[in-house]
């Protein structure tokens, strides 16, 4: 069973909504059936084949090629299989995904992995705002799975996250882990203002510069043994982690005392 390959012929004039691009669904579809799947081009209902050359079918291993930064919802809600985006991905890539592997070779626009529940989303470039985050009105953001980012992350990383792990090799913007309910966010660069703002539980682990909000309280400096396991696992998965981080001590700040203060910010020290 070979891979299904989709090639976008030309960047669409207006954003193309293509939540139909899901490897778990492609496994049951022929090449012609995949080409007939519905997409929205602005307010027009069109078929996937109107924009993409489709090669192959009946496979849950999918590669998508072309200028995809205006293609939205790639791999959204996918529950299995493997999807590789050979370039940048538009907004909502992997949003709500429940299983499988989504790999984005370039950058991902806003809402990558928003409200994802399982599976692995790996972004080789940067992610923009709200990666692993919650949509307006939702009680929970990311609720399971692993989000790996090789580059930097935008603002509101993992906002209202409830479970799972986010690891960012670069820096993160403002309000990383804001209103977090549980889960782990690991950042290997700096984080912007107000990390963990309104956090109830969960861990935000920062290896670069971080200024905990005033509603956090310094507790101690220690060497959490579980973090070494986390970091080794992330390195094994290919995240570029500097050797010096593997054995360091962390300053622990409890918070957020404006909410239920059962979470923590761990700031790496030499």
């Amino acid at each position: 069973m070979g891979a299904v390959v989709l090639r976008l012929r030309a960047a669409p004039a207006v954003p193309l909504e293509a939540p139909c691009i899901r490897p778990d669904h492609f496994a049951a579809l022929s090449e012609a059936e995949i080409a007939r799947l519905p997409v929205w081009h602005g307010s027009e209902a069109r078929a996937l084949g109107d924009f993409f050359d489709v090669r192959g079918g009946h496979a849950d291993d999918v590669r998508v090629k072309g200028e995809l930064s205006r293609v939205k919802h790639l791999g959204a809600e996918m529950a299995g299989g493997r999807l590789v985006i050979e370039g940048d991905a538009g907004p909502h890539a992997g949003a709500g995904m429940a299983g499988g592997t989504l790999r984005i070779e370039g950058d991902a626009a806003a809402w990558a992995g928003a409200e994802m529940r399982g599976g692995v989303l790996e972004v080789r470039g940067r992610v923009r705002a709200y990666a692993g985050g919650a949509y307006a009105g939702s009680r929970w953001g990311m609720a399971g799975g692993l989000l790996l980012v090789h580059g930097d992350a935008g603002d509101f990383l993992g906002v209202r996250m409830r479970r799972g792990t986010i690891a960012v090799a670069g820096c993160a913007g403002e309000c990383a882990g804001a209103e977090m309910i549980a889960g782990s966010i690991l950042v290997f660069g700096d984080v912007g203002r107000r990390p963990g703002f309104g956090l109830k539980r969960g861990s935000i682990v920062v290896h670069g510069a971080v200024e905990p909000p005033p509603t956090y309280r310094y507790a101690c400096t220690y060497r959490p043994p579980h973090l070494a396991l986390y970091l080794r696992e992330l390195a094994r998965r290919g995240l570029p982690i500097e050797e010096r981080f593997l054995g360091g001590a962390y300053r622990r700040y409890n918070g957020d005392f404006a909410e239920l203060p059962r979470g923590e910010i761990l700031a790496w020290t030499t």
Partner: peptide, 10 residues
């Protein structure tokens, strides 16, 4: 918004 987002008519 979360209830409406899940129930969209095109």
């Amino acid at each position: 918004p979360e209830r409406r987002r899940r129930d969209v008519e095109r």
